[in-house]
Design a binder for these strands. Structure first.
Lengths: 129, 129
DNA sequence: CTGCATGTACTAATAGTACAAGTACAATAT
DNA sequence: ATATTGTACTTGTACTATTAGTACATGCAG
């Protein structure tokens, strides 16, 4: 498995990790049960902070793409391929694009949309993260 | 026309101006052709910076609610009432809330939603702003 | 028990962004 | 000339997200 990280990209590093690991799973480069490098190992290999890797892992765990087994390490989830199938990121982008386009057509300015979005995300916060 | 600005509110001042001017148009307090105070005049009356007022005017011009006639001043647009759907803000908030709720239900984290939103707004930018 | 590796939680530094303010400018009427 | 219109450019501040540094709980190996 080859991970390529571009720290100058506007896409956050932890997101790049998520995307590439998901890709590796769908491509078959990573199979259920396979062990992943530890957060520190991978961080060391890629010259990143281990918390950045941990953040990516955390998200993948939430999506049931990988599974943390405490001191034993982290492994590809049994249903990884299934849970990777629909790329959440793509869905989110698509759905949001759709809505934003409609809002613009009704005459809303970007500023208005941004403000409304910010308020919504601030007021009704999701637990966890 | 009575404008009330609350600088401690989380809603930006220029947005409050936009909302209230649109409100005045839909209520009939301001009619097409009516002259608006100059950016400096209004800023002085409300103890604001003239650029803050200018920003609000800029948005309203973009929405064809008002019309800048250069040195002659700024006036209510002929189709102001039509272009000034006061419910716009409510619609925007409602539509966005709806979409965000769906995305959360599919398992997307706030972080993912924020990133996707930011990218969309950055990439497919509206003119002006 | 000691030492080491695992994931995780908490805090600090940095970068990016939005709002607002200060200044300066082009255009035009008086 | 002077004043007034809207506008452009730059700066300071506050807020947020990302990333990094440190410390901790758990459990294996010797």
């Amino acid at each position: 498995m080859e991970l390529i990280i571009n720290t100058t990209d506007s896409v956050p590093v932890f997101s790049q990790l998520i995307d590439q690991i998901k890709n590796a799973v769908t491509n078959g480069d990573l199979s259920p049960g396979d062990a992943l490098p530890s957060v520190r190992q991978l961080a060391n290999d890629l010259n990143l902070n281990h918390n950045t890797v941990a953040k990516a892992y955390k998200h993948l765990i939430r999506d049931s793409v990988i599974q943390a087994k405490g001191y034993r390490g982290t492994f590809i989830h049994i249903d990884a391929k299934l849970n990777c199938n629909f790329d959440l990121n793509t869905v989110v982008t698509f759905k949001l694009s759709e809505t934003i386009q409609i809002l613009r057509q009704t005459g809303a300015t970007d500023s208005e949309i941004r403000i409304a979005f910010g308020n919504i995300m601030k007021i009704q916060q999701n637990s966890g993260e």
